[in-house]
Design a protein around this nucleic acid. Structure first.
Length: 423
RNA sequence: GGAGAGAUGGCUGAGUGGUUUAAAGCGGCGGAUUGCUAAUCCGUUGUACGUCUAUCAGGCGUACCGGGGGUUCGAAUCCCCCUCUCUCCGCCA
């Protein structure tokens, strides 16, 4: 959420930034509502001040045994007017809030300007894509041949887009999760969190999933709950409506399943495990001082890259342009893995700085050097997303004999074996 | 799911309609005193919104005693609804 005062005082800058994102926002109505709210507030607060004074006087005179009938009647009138104006302020306030919650964040000043994904900038490409002396298979064939994933039974029990990992396939998934958690907790200084997977509306609003992305989430209507699309949601909201009493930065890492309806993506990537309704992800979240947030963003990207470097997989880092930035992000890097079976790049991480956009929505503050509360900056980065990592790993490490080599760093997590072989 | 008890400032805890613009204590901050530490003494103390001014600061106003609504000239206090916590019962991995 943007600060209303910022919008008021920097109207041109805000308009320009939102235009670069391609966001159609009616600022005129917003500013008019703001104007009316402040005017009405001034009027009603004046009346309340008057009422407080007179009421106090009535109390004093009653104690002195004087008649206060006339005064009481007069104040009753004032009270009626106050009730009307209060109602008006409430309406304006609600309307303003609803509009503010739908305005996306302002992009970082160096963000490349572009209309869509084609405007993204390749920051670097690391590692070399493998050369095969045979025709590389895709992950669906590999997973089926090795008995790692059962696509048909996933569809049978839950529908298309749900996976069943079996035997060594399940073991490999667990190994990857554990490998990443160990890396981030032991070497990168994160505290591990296991949050709820169902969150209510206030939490979903805090990080920006609501109100705009409601149709992307699975809902539990009977209880007013939503399945989390990412651990970012519960973990960032851990400190909702708090003035933090601990030193910054706060660094959390969480493994959770993620649930996405992929409502707008029907028919895309339907084959295999590239776009599924449920996948595992290890997510890093940081709450930091505003002055540090852009340095921390670089740190996050490197920590996500470390996962891929240890697994010896080739990848590239992109900076998203204004038109491709997600709703709440001010600056975002995506990391993509090369998948030989797809002959394409797969997004496995998204590292974003939200500045104070989420903190303002969620009310997450800390005390600055002057002791006054300030909003923190929030960041998160996948470290990294499974399913797609799994795809790239299978396709990258496939051998001519049909086996899958296990990279050295991962081997201890699968009981020391160095390859998966067909049964 | 049923019954009961509770929710007050950073913490403990008083307060059942107007001298409470929330007592007192603890803690925090500033100062005094003091070889050092401790102790003692004095002062100070939250958040949001609005507004004004001599605007790296402050003044004024409004609201905030779990959340929302109501009664009243006036609500922490009375009434209604909700949430959460605790205790007991039931159910249960």
């Amino acid at each position: 959420m943007l600060d209303l005062r910022t919008i008021r005082e920097n109207e041109a800058t805000v308009r320009n930034a939102l235009a670069q994102r391609g966001a159609g926002v009616n600022l005129d109505d917003l500013l008019r509502l703001d104007q009316e709210r402040r005017a009405t507030l001034q009027e009603v607060e004046g009346l309340k001040s008057e009422r407080n004074t007179v009421s106090k006087e009535i109390g004093a005179r009653k104690r002195a045994g004087e008649d206060t009938q006339a005064q009481q009647e007069r104040v009753r009138e004032v009270g009626r007017r106050i009730a009307e104006l209060d109602e008006r302020v409430r309406t304006l306030q609600t309307d303003l809030e609803a509009r503010l919650l739908r305005i996306p964040n302002i992009p970082y000043r160096e963000t490349p300007v572009g209309a869509d994904a084609s405007g993204n900038r390749v920051v670097r490409e690391v590692g070399t894509r493998p050369a095969f002396d045979f025709e590389p298979a895709d992950h669906v064939a590999l997973a089926e041949r090795l008995g790692l994933v059962d696509f048909a039974r996933g569809a049978r029990i839950s529908g298309a887009g749900f996976l069943v990992y079996t035997g060594w396939g399940a073991r490999l998934e667990r190994a990857l999760v554990q490998f990443m958690l160990d890396l981030h907790t032991r070497e990168h200084g994160y505290t591990e969190i296991q949050p709820p997977l169902l969150c209510h509306a206030a939490t979903m609003t805090g990080t920006g999933q609501l109100p705009k992305m409601a149709e992307d989430m699975y809902t539990i209507e009977a209880d007013g709950l939503y399945l989390i699309p990412t651990a970012e949601v519960p973990v960032t909201n851990l400190h909702r409506e708090e003035i933090l009493d601990r030193p910054l930065p706060i660094k959390y890492v969480a493994y959770t399943p993620c649930f996405r309806r992929e409502a707008g993506a029907a028919g895309r990537d339907t084959r295999g495990m590239i776009r599924v309704h449920q996948f595992d992800k290890v997510e890093m979240v940081q709450l930091v001082e505003p002055e540090q947030s852009y340095a921390v963003l670089e740190e996050l990207v490197q920590q996500a890259e470390t996962v891929l470097q240890r697994l010896e997989l080739p990848y590239r880092v992109l900076e998203l342009c204004t038109g491709d930035l997600s709703f709440a992000a001010a600056r975002c890097y995506d990391i993509e893995l090369w998948a030989p079976g797809q002959q394409d790049w797969l997004e496995v991480s998204s590292c974003s700085n939200f500045e104070d956009f989420q903190a303002r929505r969620a009310g997450i503050r800390y005390r600055g050097p002057d002791g006054k509360p300030r909003f923190v900056h929030t960041l998160n980065g996948s470290g990294v997303a499974l399913a797609r990592l799994y795809v790239a790993l299978l396709e990258h490490y496939q051998q001519a004999d049909g086996s899958i080599r296990i990279p050295e760093a991962l081997s201890p997590y699968v009981g020391g074996i160095d390859r998966l072989t067909p049964p």
